[in-house]
Design a protein around this nucleic acid. Structure first.
Length: 503
RNA sequence: GCCGCCUUAGCUCAGUUGGUUAGAGCGCCAGAUUGUGGAUCUGGAGGUCCUCCGUUCAAUCCGGAGAGGCGGUACCA
């Protein structure tokens, strides 16, 4: 085996790049169903589809602009057409669908109908450390309204997101949209004397961890800092005790609708920006009520932060409440499957003109994985084609004719194209989860017949069979019919299987 | 980025206190069965023991460095 046919050490290892995965039929069918269902909902709301390139010039993507020192920080970037000095335009794979939308809207602003409503889906790439269920390439689906400052635009996005998740297969009560407004926390921090941008960020980060660390952990992070179990120390926001308690009181204002608004107005009190945020949430509440979205589907939750600078007003997050378990039966918290909010400054980066915008995006693969883990993907069932056994070299033309007839009748079919014997061919059909196999050998040709084997019937019967000889001679589910009745016979088998539970 | 654990067959893992030919289960291939899936039995293929350097008569095993994987943490557009 150490001969020339196997040069040692010179073979590439067949493996995926770190953080990238192959997705097979099962995953793809599930994702396609989700996208089809969600697209239909979004279009019903008047959103038009848009596709944009995988690459954008790096400056258009915004703050993750690669530079000479760290060209790959966060994004996958390359230099387009570099000259002799290595100078070229930096371009990068998009890391979300919102930045490309901002570029597109700015570029076509003069001719777009405004407000502009579009949805988009496709892969996005992030050059960062992968984690469990977290990859460097994944499919996102995003919907935005550009050019409307009305809180109703936010409410409609929220309502549409809720409806979209249900259409994708999340059962009623399986997810909740949590809504907050950046202006509330900004107002609160302003009245507490927090003006430093770095300190503001630290406060946001601390609040974001409320669900994981609890109020005590967040209190530490708002103050001096916190040391976790592994001994790593996270520097805190450096807030004084009074200010920290005010922030905590704010985040504790409950997750409801009208009652939460009342509590928030007590805690916020005073600042102009805070009052503005409160008024926006009240308007969103009214719109949600008229859109038929109750507190069972969307609530106000002051602990929702959603990322950093970018958002300027309302923010929302979709949390999955479905009970899910992993392969070992351990419960898994999927948590957030999507989020969004109002970003009024993103397009101004290009045009200098402030354009209000709001949107929501979710991870399609992640949602599919969550639905699978929750056992909600039963509708996705992969059946193989009808397999025509390649019995006789000289008769291949006849086999292809059978395949053609079946395909013309709308039945997925294929002629076995390997070189193995019949046993292996049957095994192949079984493994493909084929509904039926067609056997036309010398006997059938002589008699002008075809033998059709109902593989599901055999699958069902095989459980009770212990003797191989009997299993073979019984030939379960097998019928021989005149060649002319072949397609009709298979049709009957398929119709019968459609009524039976999946094998 | 930081911390910890791990790396032996396609997969899950044994094992060798450093010594001739490194094992199991599952999976795969074939036969028992000229033309039939599951089960069973029999046989077979499949390994640079992650890589490099060092120590040694001798390294899959000991030491060092590196790579890759997993988990936590930080970041998350």
């Amino acid at each position: 085996m150490t001969d020339a046919s196997k040069p040692q050490g010179s073979r590439p290892e067949a493996r995926n790049p770190r953080g990238f995965i192959d997705r097979r039929a099962r995953d793809l069918v599930a994702e396609r169903q989700i996208l089809a269902a969600v697209s239909a909902v979004y279009e019903r709301y008047g959103f038009e589809p848009l596709d944009s390139p995988a690459f954008e010039y790096a400056d258009a993507l915004g703050k993750f602009l690669p530079d000479a020192d760290r060209p790959n920080e966060g994004v996958f970037a390359l230099q387009d057409d570099p000259d002799a000095d290595g100078n070229g335009q930096w371009m990068a794979l998009r890391y979300d669908l919102t930045a490309p939308l901002a570029r597109f809207a700015a570029q076509n602003w003069e001719t777009l109908p405004k407000p502009f409503r579009r949805y988009a889906f496709g892969p996005v790439w992030r050059n960062e450390k992968p984690g469990p269920g977290r990859y460097r390439e994944f499919v996102q689906c995003d919907a935005d309204t550009v050019g409307s400052a009305r809180p109703e635009a936010d409410a409609e996005i929220i309502a549409m997101a809720a409806e979209g998740l249900e259409a994708a297969g999340v059962p009623a009560g399986g997810a909740i949209l949590k809504i907050n407004n950046r202006k509330l926390l900004n107002g609160l921090m302003a009245s507490a004397g927090v003006t430093d941008e770095g300190q503001k960020l630290a406060v946001l980060r601390a609040v974001d961890k409320l669900d994981r660390l609890g109020p005590d952990g967040v209190r530490l992070l708002l103050g001096e800092g916190r040391k976790d179990e592994s001994g790593a120390f996270t520097k805190g926001a450096g807030l004084g005790g009074g200010a920290a308690e005010r922030v905590l009181a704010f985040t504790a204002a409950g997750a409801g609708r009208g009652d939460t608004l009342g509590q928030l107005s007590n805690v916020i009190g005073g600042s102009v920006e805070g009052d503005e945020g409160l008024a926006e949430l009240e308007a969103i509440d009214r719109a949600l009520v008229s859109l038929g979205v109750g507190a069972d589907r969307a609530v106000f939750d002051p602990s929702v932060v959603r990322g950093l600078e970018y958002y300027t007003g309302a923010v929302f997050e979709a949390e999955l409440l479905l009970g899910t378990t992993d392969e070992r039966g351990q419960p898994v918290r999927f948590g957030s499957v999507g989020g969004g909010g109002r970003y009024d400054d993103l397009i101004a980066r290009f045009t200098g003109e402030r354009v209000p915008a709001t949107g929501f995006s979710f991870g399609v693969s992640r949602l599919a994985a969550a639905l699978r883990a929750a056992g909600r993907d039963a509708a996705v069932e992969l059946r193989g084609p009808v397999v025509i056994i390649a019995f006789d070299e000289a008769r291949m033309a006849d086999y292809f004719a059978v395949a053609g007839e079946l395909r013309a009748a709308g039945v997925p079919a294929e002629v076995y194209l390997g070189s193995s014997g019949m046993r292996a061919q049957m095994k192949y059909a079984d493994r493909r989860l084929s509904p039926a196999a067609v056997i036309i050998g010398g006997d059938e040709f002589a008699a002008g017949t075809a033998t059709v084997k109902d593989l599901d019937l055999g699958r069902a019967l095989s459980a009770g069979v212990t003797d191989n000889a009997a299993w073979r001679t019984d030939r379960p589910g097998q019928v021989t019919v005149p060649r002319a009745e072949l397609v009709a016979t298979i049709r009957e088998i398929l119709d019968a299987q459609a009524l039976a539970p999946a094998p």
